Amino acid sequence: MATKAVCVLKGDGPVQGIINFEQKESNGPVKVWGSIKGLTEGLHGFHVHEFGDNTAGCTSAGPHFNPLSRKHGGPKDEERHVGDLGNVTADKDGVADVSIEDSVISLSGDHCIIGRTLVVHEKADDLGKGGNEESTKTGNAGSRLACGVIGIAQ
């Protein structure tokens, strides 16, 4: 089992970053940390998408990683996509320092995120509470600013 993974985020604009993942036990939580720069100040949706395909930019990554066919939600919700990591918060300089621990994603097994795409979005994720159909699919997080395929790390 891989215990570490990394993702280099890039987009068409100024947004870029490096996100690290570490899972010490196969059924334990995954620590997610790193930094994203070039964002507007505020909240930005942060999700693992189904495919590791960036051939047409971030759009070819498909929908959120959702092997259990659930509705979109927040990272602490029972009803959520596996890939729903909530929001990252950018400061006035456009930098989001990421520090998350998640017990639904994994670096092995059915919820493995390796080979899938991590995406940072234009807007805040409403965590499935926006009151419309799009909220239950995407959290109304808007366009995909930057993305990268999650790969095994040393």
Rank of each mutant, 00 (worst) to 15 (best):
A2Y: 03
K4H: 07
A5K: 02
V6C: 03
V6K: 15
V8P: 02
L9R: 01
L9M: 12
L9D: 05
K10D: 08
G11D: 07
G17W: 03
I18S: 09
I19R: 00
I19G: 02
N20R: 09
F21G: 05
E22A: 09
E22L: 13
E22T: 08
K24Q: 10
K24F: 02
N27C: 10
V30W: 01
K31L: 14
S35G: 07
I36Y: 02
K37E: 15
K37Q: 05
T40P: 11
T40N: 10
T40S: 11
T40Q: 08
E41I: 08
E41Y: 04
G42L: 02
G42W: 01
L43R: 14
H44M: 00
H44N: 09
H44R: 01
G45W: 03
G45Y: 00
F46H: 02
H47R: 11
H47P: 00
H47V: 09
V48M: 02
H49A: 15
H49Y: 12
H49R: 07
E50L: 05
E50Q: 10
D53F: 10
N54L: 13
N54H: 10
T55L: 15
A56Y: 07
C58V: 14
S60R: 10
P63K: 02
H64K: 15
F65D: 11
N66K: 07
P67G: 08
L68C: 03
S69V: 15
R70V: 02
R70E: 04
K71M: 08
D77F: 15
D77L: 13
E79G: 09
H81M: 00
H81G: 05
V82Y: 08
D84R: 14
G86A: 04
G86R: 03
N87P: 11
V88C: 07
V88G: 03
D91H: 11
D91Q: 07
D91N: 12
K92R: 07
K92N: 11
K92C: 09
K92S: 09
K92L: 10
D93K: 09
V95Y: 15
V95N: 15
V95T: 13
V98G: 00
V98L: 08
S99T: 09
E101P: 02
E101F: 15
V104L: 11
I105M: 10
S106M: 00
S106L: 05
S108Y: 13
S108P: 01
S108C: 11
S108G: 13
G109T: 02
G109N: 01
D110G: 10
H111F: 06
C112T: 14
C112D: 04
I113M: 04
I113R: 01
I114P: 03
I114E: 03
I114H: 00
T117K: 10
V119W: 03
V119D: 10
H121R: 09
H121K: 14
E122H: 07
E122P: 01
K123D: 09
A124N: 11
D125E: 06
D126P: 15
G128R: 09
G128V: 06
K129R: 11
K129A: 08
G131V: 12
G131L: 14
N132I: 07
E133W: 14
T136C: 11
T138D: 09
G139F: 01
N140I: 09
A141F: 14
G142N: 04
S143N: 11
R144L: 13
L145R: 09
A146R: 02
A146V: 07
C147L: 08
G148L: 01
I150Y: 02
I150P: 02
G151Q: 14
A153S: 14
A153T: 07
